[in-house]
Structure formats: C-alpha cells, structure tokens
C-alpha cells in the first residue's frame, strides 16, 4: 500500500525533469505524451513506491506536481 500519491497538472508542466531526477523513491518518469504546449510531462510509473514526501512539489518550478500523504483510514474506507 502506497504511503502517498502524486498529483500532476500536466498543462502547467515545462518538462524540466527536476521531479523525475530528485524523487527519492524513483516514482516518476517523463512520458512520451505531449501536453498542449509540446512538453513531455512526467507520469507515475511506480505508484506503490510513493512516500508522499512532496519533494517533487518542492522542486517543481511550475507548481505542476505535488504529493500528499495517504490517509490510511480514508484509503481503507474507499475500497
């Protein structure tokens, strides 16, 4: 069970790659898809590894990504 989840606002991304490079658990990769400005936004390749540390959100110069800690009680209730 992942401890956190990443949210990405793809239209804001400018594909600098900071989040992909500095994610401590290597959750992300740049995707081959384009956003409307022609950049390759990141996508989540290992959702189960996310710790919700929000380092991606701290690094993102475009405010396009952030991570939140999963609330264990709420997450259990969803399923």
């Amino acid at each position: 069970m992942a401890k956190g989840r990443v949210s990405i606002v793809v239209e804001r991304c400018k594909a600098c790659g900071f989040c992909v490079e500095f994610c401590p658990t290597r959750v992300l990769a740049l995707s081959s898809a384009f956003n409307s400005k022609g950049y390759h936004p990141p996508h989540v390749v290992h959702p189960e590894k996310c710790s919700g540390c929000d380092l991606c959100g701290m690094y993102c110069p475009d405010f396009a990504i952030f991570a939140t800690k999963t609330d264990p009680v709420k997450a259990g209730g969803d399923k």
Binding site: R12, K14, Y59, C60, P61, F63
Partner: peptide, 18 residues
C-alpha cells in the same frame, strides 16, 4: 496568471515553493 513566464527549469519557481 499561471503558467508563468519563467523558462523551463528556471529556479525562481522552486524558491516560491520554499
């Protein structure tokens, strides 16, 4: 006003996060 005018990879947005 977002997206901002700063270049891809410019560090100013990162400082705003902090």
């Amino acid at each position: 006003r977002i997206p901002h005018i700063w270049c891809p990879g410019c560090g100013i947005g990162t400082t705003v996060n902090s």
